[in-house]
Write a protein that binds this DNA or RNA. Structure first.
Lengths: 228, 228
DNA sequence: GGACCATTTTAGGTGTACCTAAATATTTAG
DNA sequence: CTAAATATTTAGGTACACCTAAAATGGTCC
């Protein structure tokens, strides 16, 4: 029986790689099955299955030891960054060229990222003038897979009142995204932050009158950096 | 045992409906399994399977009697036209906005047509100024599914030398499409047609020096109308 | 009008990506 | 250090869209 080779160019594989990349964080730590199951909305058993497949490929996309979590191989990271590049270029394109509302770009990009060709990628990149950031403030990986490191930290890490610049905003919760947008909280904006009593954050964008209160978990969706 | 309901919102179903629509022609004649198998590059047995499923749905997408061929139901036709609209809007968009070479728009549109949202459709339609024709000269179905009738005929039907206007060109053969394009044979262009000896067609676009010889089957890909 | 041929359908299988339930390993808590 | 709780894997199934091989049907030709 020859080892039968499986097809790893599927939407599903894309999504697993993206999730592992996202959950691994900047240090690319090992990611647990449960965390993946949670993120992908899939039963833990399905995760095990897929990870075994990804690890057993002729060119493995992940390093996986049973019960020890998983992390991307070089090939897997390359693929993940390629998809992330598609995603962020698409978001930028939908926002800039097609005039999408900011809170809708993510869902559309999430579907299309798996199906656009290299040519499509190239054409929108050119049309947008080779952008470095998407409309949420996230860095767009370069063609060669290089991506600059984050110098920002989550708003939820702040412990004292202060003024900051909005670095980026997670695109995963469209309701929150819209709420932030309505209050002028968008990448690059100057932000006054007050810690309220019970671990809530009170924000006001520069030039705005209305403040906005955010829960700790919602504050995790906003990344900030120091002014300057 | 309750009748278990199946999911009919798949790329595959889209492709079957498109194929039935295309093969049925303007009269929407019944289409045979073999013709579909051929067009979709799928075994005849698979066709039977899918047609049974499409016909058995709570809202049937086709009318199907065993061994008598198939045709679209009202719901099926609506879906087919929706996808055709996506396809042609995408082609126009790729050509006009992203500057794709004409012979590449089809393949990309064919993949993306299944995944774009209503919003995407609306936005590109608006951006293009609500176009009525795609870059191959094909009519883009309106949102309500209306599509004007063809007044053109295939070049392959011509029996005597003459001058015509190019109406449209099939996008299915990208090599031919490119060849025609290079010779200036594009929708709206005035065309001189000479019948050569063995059922071949010799074409020259107005203002061009070089002629082009086309086989009968290739000539079937070009539709023409009378001058005026 | 019956035999042959092409078309179509039935029957039974494959690979992908899921699922649930049960078994097993690991971590944590007392 | 062991027992309970938690995390993970194995085992066995499902739906989808294909496949091949074999059976059934239908049209045509003498």
């Amino acid at each position: 029986m020859t080892t039968r080779r499986v097809n790893l160019n599927t939407e599903s594989v894309d999504n697993y790689l993206k999730a592992i990349f996202a959950l691994g964080g900047p240090e690319e730590e090992r990611v647990s099955s449960t965390a993946l199951a949670d993120r992908l909305g899939v039963a833990p058993a399905s995760i095990t299955n897929m990870l075994q497949k990804l690890a057993a490929a002729p060119v493995p996309l992940v390093e996986y030891e049973s019960r020890r979590g998983v992390r991307l191989s070089t090939a897997g990271r390359r693929r993940a960054l390629e998809i992330l590049r598609h995603h962020r270029l698409l978001e930028t394109f939908l926002y800039e060229v097609l005039g999408y509302p900011i809170e809708e770009v993510h869902a559309e990009a999430e579907r299309l990222e798996h199906f656009i060709s290299e040519r499509f990628e190239e054409r929108i990149d050119a049309k947008l003038g080779r952008p470095k950031f998407d409309p949420h403030g996230h860095c767009i990986p370069a063609l060669n897979g290089k991506m600059s490191k984050q110098t920002s930290r989550p708003l939820s890490d702040i412990e004292e009142d202060g003024e900051f610049v909005v670095d980026s905003i997670s695109d995963r919760d469209s309701v929150l995204l819209k709420r932030l947008n309505v209050h002028g909280i968008t990448p690059g904006v100057r932000l006054r932050v007050l810690m309220s009593s019970r671990g809530e954050f009170v924000l006001r964008a520069s030039g705005r009158f209305k403040s906005l209160q955010l829960s700790l978990s919602d504050a995790g969706a906003v990344r900030i950096r120091s002014i300057g």
